[in-house]
Design a protein around this nucleic acid. Sequence first.
DNA 1: ATGAAATTGAATGTGATTTTCAATTTCATT
DNA 2: AATGAAATTGAAAATCACATTCAATTTCAT
Lengths: 145, 145
Amino acid sequence: MAHEVEQRSLAQYLEENHLKHTKQRQAILEIFLEASGHITSDEIYTRVRQQHPTIGFTTVYRTMKLLCEAGLASERHFDDGVTRYEIEHERHDHLVCLRCGKIIEFECEMIESTQLEIADRYRFRVLRHRHELYGHCEACRKDSD
Amino acid sequence: MAHEVEQRSLAQYLEENHLKHTKQRQAILEIFLEASGHITSDEIYTRVRQQHPTIGFTTVYRTMKLLCEAGLASERHFDDGVTRYEIEHERHDHLVCLRCGKIIEFECEMIESTQLEIADRYRFRVLRHRHELYGHCEACRKDSD
DNA sequence: ATGAAATTGAATGTGATTTTCAATTTCATT
DNA sequence: AATGAAATTGAAAATCACATTCAATTTCAT
């Protein structure tokens, strides 16, 4: 089994919360980590089924919630209205291609700090943010414009 | 009737697209403009009913889509999962209070230009963006932290 | 090995949004 | 003003993603 670090991290979360370590949870985490981010629970379900045909959609759905609580995944809602899960890591933002659906991550210190300035101006305490640029990626631009 | 400019703008869009100018559409636009932004179709429906008890939800829903296409409104999906409509105007961003739900708009030239730089770096053509800071507003902070 | 507690998965519920369709309304043309 | 083709309306039903229920199964501390 790969992803020892993450599996251990899940195990620890389960223990701490008196939850149980099942093969389903282990398998779903594995599949989720193999796919590189921004995947829907439906897509995870399909992939999980290939290796574990008995695992139900509900379990995938609930396990993804669990992984979020455990800090291993996080939910994202882009403008197409379906929930996507990404591997949890430091604050970053997204470029989303409206043609092919590709999602590129980027990070920008400048924007981060400007955000804090703005929040300050409105006496607002920022807990999290979303920052998404929608448009056409390089490949899709070549195809037509 | 108020909002002559917007009503005229709707009329023009309808004409150009061989669509029909109905009292329902006129009334819904009116109500939508009276309410100051970030309103759900359900809220619009409730308000519309007070003046026009025969207008159905479906019509409100469809008219809001129409207003978006006509460039008079635009859809926003904040993290609570319901579609909200706001009056279409130049690019701006949002502070969303996670406690009371208040939505504050802000604009920041600095962030706008940095966005373009980033898009450039990835050879990405930006068509629109969303930028939302989630946290606690001044009033809600006073209540507890 | 035991059994209380957690988990599973099928089925069902939910809530927002979207489509269907027959009846009605609009509006360019007579 | 009357006509009729095309668009619109609104009630009801369908859809979609997400969430809950519950009986059967599995986990794991003892």
